[in-house]
Design a protein around this nucleic acid. Sequence first.
DNA 1: ATATAAACTTGTCGCGCGTAAAGATTTATT
DNA 2: AATAAATCTTTACGCGCGACAAGTTTATAT
Lengths: 338, 338
Amino acid sequence: MEDFSAFVGLSRPTVSKYFNDPGSVRQKTRDIIEAAVKQSGFRPNIFAVNLNRRRTNILGIIIPNSTDPFYTALTRRIEGIAEQAGYLAFVLSSDGKPELEERAIETFKSMNVAGSIIAPLGVQSHQEKLLKLGESIPMIYVDSPLDTVSPFVGTNNRQSFQLIVDYLTRSGDAPCYFGMPPVNSNAFERREAYCEAMDSLRLEPRVVEAEQAADWDFEKSAFDATSQILRNGGFPTKTVLCANDRVAFGVIAAAYQAGVKVGRGEDCDLRVAGHDDQPLSRYMCPPLTTVAQNYNEIGRLAAALLFHKLGEHQDSKFELPANERILLNAEIMLRTSA
Amino acid sequence: MEDFSAFVGLSRPTVSKYFNDPGSVRQKTRDIIEAAVKQSGFRPNIFAVNLNRRRTNILGIIIPNSTDPFYTALTRRIEGIAEQAGYLAFVLSSDGKPELEERAIETFKSMNVAGSIIAPLGVQSHQEKLLKLGESIPMIYVDSPLDTVSPFVGTNNRQSFQLIVDYLTRSGDAPCYFGMPPVNSNAFERREAYCEAMDSLRLEPRVVEAEQAADWDFEKSAFDATSQILRNGGFPTKTVLCANDRVAFGVIAAAYQAGVKVGRGEDCDLRVAGHDDQPLSRYMCPPLTTVAQNYNEIGRLAAALLFHKLGEHQDSKFELPANERILLNAEIMLRTSA
DNA sequence: ATATAAACTTGTCGCGCGTAAAGATTTATT
DNA sequence: AATAAATCTTTACGCGCGACAAGTTTATAT
């Protein structure tokens, strides 16, 4: 920056001010600097910048699985917002492993991140670590809550399951429930939500008992479990509501390979519904009836909450939500699988 | 670290040495430090560490699409290897947009990354920027080559298309070719590879002319194009070879919704094959016959090349490939779609 | 024209750490 | 026990920048 400011013909502190806030220097000065930047390609060294700042411009994001399109789409949304606000989003995946989640937390601590957005694993032992980190920097949880008090943005499982259970019940057989591996609290919450929805209709909840390993290969475990179920007499009802779309993919694939026709048509044997509306769900055969999580809104609100805690309330685009526990309503996506 | 070393009862330089290379201090000293780390949770500030190092321990990774499971799987593999070698992998997605790719390059420059692994967009104008960056730091290209000379690891499209064309031709109708949007050089290379494979069998190549927008929503553009094709008399042959699996997903979905039965059975109307073996391909209905890219090996070799250029040849696990242009053979995955 | 504010300059400090040199201490070797 | 080698301590510097203070120039207002 020393060299660069000499090249520009200005003092280094002025150039430094420009990079921190372009609006803090005169228009004419700004133009000169920007021209020189374009010509020389100079950029302040990010490590030096973040070393002697009280607060860095880095946001830490932790997701539990980097190959799940739901999390990557959510992440992309947050990255975009962060960049617009002058922050750099650093994404780490815990890959379903508690030790990696812990290491990610350590890494962010050593980076002195300004704030963090985390989709946590459901590991009890990390709760205190995360809460401890949360004392020093703002943290927002998404997808699956850490506890009952920390800031959280996610989908209202009660509402979404009420919606889909209502629909399925009105349009045919009452659904049984096919769970997801117990990788986070959603696994339990959604089962509860299903049961409550059934109760409210005065129907008997029927949860399919299927052993599923606690890893993130949802399709595989659902496929294997379904194959076995179909060999042993099939599902308890002619409608299966899955905890999420990836589970539904596995169920549908197993049904297809077992010769069971999935769909809501007269000639079909089984209806299958999902939850989340993954990008590929509409391209399934048959297209998957599901409930859409609004990941754009989850990302936007998580970022808004975080920026508010960081004291960034300049732009009106970051409408601040009323409280710190946000449950978004889901929207039903009627397709032909159920 | 000042405070921490006082807490440990050692001098700061010794502690510093430990963090740089635990083997450089005595066993007893190491134990003391490690006990103290466990107790206090101290970690050196990553910005300070990387500020006055001649070379950082950061690797920059750029992928063109963060929601494509192929790239995320590749990335995960590289991240794992990097971490084992003491590097931190920083992943940025260009999201298909040249300006984001450029910004990612700028970001990595400002971070003074030790090296970079890039799956480039096929944008001509960035070639010089990337090459210029490549003069100062080692860069490895994956998936789609930047030019004909830079270090590259990817799949041998000629071999893979020969393989699948051979299979399809032997087992039924010769395939026509359904391309992918022109987002990178693979789009052109694969079409060429198909044509060459057909030529070698003395068959007439038949490339389906379908307008596809140059974005990464492959399924959608393939779905739309296929729907139109099926309305207008269908494909030129009863077998469609797609440039990649995501395209095949779109084709299969459109066929399903048009009432065209896909598969290799007697009662089927259309065979569809893909390329890449995406994680979900085996769960399609019908399961997708495709050619598997060995992304584990692509990731491993790209990392091996990079580490070699960085002078890290300690471990024998990083078997160095013979040259810097590596084309891996693909493996055919016979399933029931073709 | 003068007063005042705004924008700049020069100079200096320190963020937290790696690194090097020189001396002190411990451990291994004969 | 004496010598050599390994490991440690002390001291000092600088990585590239943000931040601040004090002084100087330039723009705006009266």
